[in-house]
Nucleic acid binder design. Structure first.
Lengths: 89, 89
DNA sequence: TAAATACATTGAAAGTTTTAAATATATAAA
DNA sequence: TTTATATATTTAAAACTTTCAATGTATTTA
């Protein structure tokens, strides 16, 4: 993993709201309803949407559309690579 | 490690220049001469100073003054905690 | 097919970060 | 003790990020 990729992932992790979204996902089998996340984080819906996009763009989570909702899963491969890259740098 | 701390460290890691500084340190036994880093990164000296400060403030590196220069060491304890906190979240 | 729901996109304001010029301070060397 | 060197701080401009209101699009339900 090159420095630009490490930078991008670190940036994606550098926000409490996004960390809360990630934690919420993990607690809910990768399922997030955007509207529920809004209530939890006291953020407007477009803000949640924006944060989720950052996580997707960093390739940290994978997005699957299911009807009107989305399900997400942690991209374990990228996650592991990131952690390995950090220790090696 | 709480979310605010994870956020701070992630932010500190979310910049290619800071990652390069960290890598440089690791390759040079934790020694950085600010002026050399300037050349390496083609950044002005106050910028390097600023970036190093961010790493110190995130508690990722420890700073020791040696004469006119500084030596640094990776704060292994915090580094390990960070990685652990990420996998657990 | 009309209304409701879930989420995305656009655009703009407010906040934060990055950068460097100018300047300050601490230490070393002459 | 003057001069040079290494790094820090202040300040301000430019770039980027966060937030949300308004609006758009896709899907489900009535």
């Amino acid at each position: 993993m090159n420095l630009k990729q490490i930078e991008k992932i670190s940036k994606a992790l550098g926000d409490v709201n996004r960390l809360k979204i990630l934690r919420y996902m993990q607690k809910h089998n990768g399922k997030v309803e955007c509207t529920q996340a809004c209530k939890l984080l006291t953020l407007a819906q477009p803000s949640i949407s924006h944060h989720i996009k950052k996580l997707v763009e960093a390739d940290l989570i994978l997005q699957h559309k299911v009807g009107r909702n989305y399900n997400y899963s942690l991209n374990q491969k990228v996650w592991d690579k990131y952690q390995k890259s950090l220790t090696e740098l």
